[in-house]
């Protein structure tokens, strides 16, 4: 992460000064030193709040939806994954391209706080700062500086990220990163499960989804879950019973996986938001993998690309006789 917080601040300040944006969505320091939170600026005066570091996990694209009605242009800081969500929002006509100003930052991976603490054997209070150090993170603790190899502590989605550089932007801060050295098999998580027997798969998901408390955090945080009235909230027809049992949890998660099919860019927000630690990415990744294998489709690359389930080719695979 060669780009510094200072560079982000300067660039945003200039955008406000030049009158190119009226609002900006970025990150600021959070409640502890392992956390950053989304930050909304209305003028260049407060840009010093902005930070950019390997803790900036949130996909800010979702907040563009909240700022659709404001006067002027909304600036937003996007990583590779976030930019792909922006592409999906543009595809779905949920935002207008000329009403957003996209500040891209190449990203070489976000820290998974819990993994970091475990690897270092420390508690959150011990961390002072986390910086990007190429193939390692440089962690300043109360005891001094420590170096941790990225592969040990990256977030799951960053381990398989193919788009470290934003795919759409008005300005790019720092140099593009073509690929990340640790990314090899994108779908090992999925394949592992695919190879199990039906019985074992059922057992796995039973175990995982029995924990779901149906708080809908995964849906609420997802940038492409943006329907004005979600079908799960509709009273008639009722697609989902209020009963919180595994069967209904499964219905919820399957339908959700289908609803984000071809739109999910694996930003990992659902999994990060889940208070019960359910491996939701494993579900979304499965659909992602199938769409790629069946129809050669990858979400969030090109605004002009038509969603894969809204079109067809006569020569598509036909396994149904």
């Amino acid at each position: 992460m060669k780009t510094s917080s200072k560079e982000v601040q300067d660039s945003v300040k200039k955008l406000f000064e030049d009158g190119r944006i009226s609002h900006f969505i970025g990150y600021e320091a959070g409640s502890d030193s392992l956390r950053v939170t989304p930050c909304f600026l209305k003028s260049g005066q407060t840009v010093s709040r902005l930070v950019w570091n390997p803790l900036c996990a949130n996909n800010l694209a979702k907040y563009l939806l909240d700022l659709r009605k404001v006067e002027g242009k909304v600036g937003i800081l996007v990583k590779g994954c976030d930019s792909r969500s922006v592409v999906e929002l543009l595809k779905e006509n949920q935002i207008e391209r000329d009403r957003v100003f996209i500040v891209g930052v190449p990203c070489s991976g976000i820290v998974d706080g819990e993994k970091l603490l475990a690897v270092l054997g420390i508690s959150p209070g011990d961390v002072v700062a986390v910086e990007d150090g190429g193939d390692a993170f440089l962690v300043t603790t109360r005891e001094g500086k420590r170096r941790v190899r990225k592969e040990q502590v990256l977030r799951g989605e960053c381990l398989v990220c193919r788009y470290p550089t934003p795919v759409i932007y008005d300005v790019l801060l720092g140099e593009a990163i073509p690929s990340l050295p640790w990314v090899r098999d994108d779908y090992s998580l999925v394949r592992e499960l695919e190879e199990l027997s039906a019985e074992e798969k059922a057992r796995y998901w039973n175990r995982e989804l029995s924990q779901c408390i149906r708080c809908y955090a995964c849906r609420n945080v997802c940038p492409v879950c943006n329907c004005p009235e979600c079908i799960f909230d509709k009273k008639a027809p009722r697609w989902l019973s209020k009963a919180n049992d595994i069967s209904e949890n499964l219905v919820y998660h399957l339908i959700r996986a289908f609803h984000v099919a071809g739109k999910c860019v694996d930003c990992g927000e659902c999994e990060r938001a889940c208070p019960m630690g359910i491996p939701l990415r494993r579900l979304n990744k499965k659909v992602e993998k199938d769409l790629l294998e069946l129809f050669g489709y990858t979400a969030g690359i090109d605004v002009e690309q038509q969603p894969p389930l809204t079109k067809y080719q006569v020569g598509d695979l036909d396994e149904f006789l």
Partner: peptide
């Protein structure tokens, strides 16, 4: 029209 979000999926299909 109240719940339509104008995403255009129906137009495409």
């Amino acid at each position: 029209p109240k719940t339509c979000k104008g995403c255009g999926t129906c137009v495409l299909v």
